[in-house]
Amino acid sequence: MQVQVLLFGIVADLIGKETLNFAIENNDTVKNLKTALRTKYPQLKNYSTYAVAVNEHYAQDDFVLKDRDVVAIIPPVSGG
């Protein structure tokens, strides 16, 4: 199973990419994905103040991911 991860703002700068494909396991949650991202990209170690959206809706840590979900990493917004 795999999800597409979209990166924005400072997180895109920190990782140096705007999209990633990330392998997930059955029943993996948003929280599992956050942990996996931090392991793969140590530059995120000190950066945890972001929200997550799954398929264009904000999702909490316990949200269970499915194959081909589109997960967006949303650093603090600053529109307006």
Binding site: G9, I10, P75, P76, V77, S78, G79, G80
Partner: peptide, 20 residues
């Protein structure tokens, strides 16, 4: 608070993501 839009400020000597 909620709309996923970000702004980057550009100064003479650099740039920064607002609220990051």
């Amino acid at each position: 608070e909620t709309v996923p839009i970000w702004k980057k400020e550009y100064f003479e000597d650099g740039e920064v993501w607002v609220n990051a």
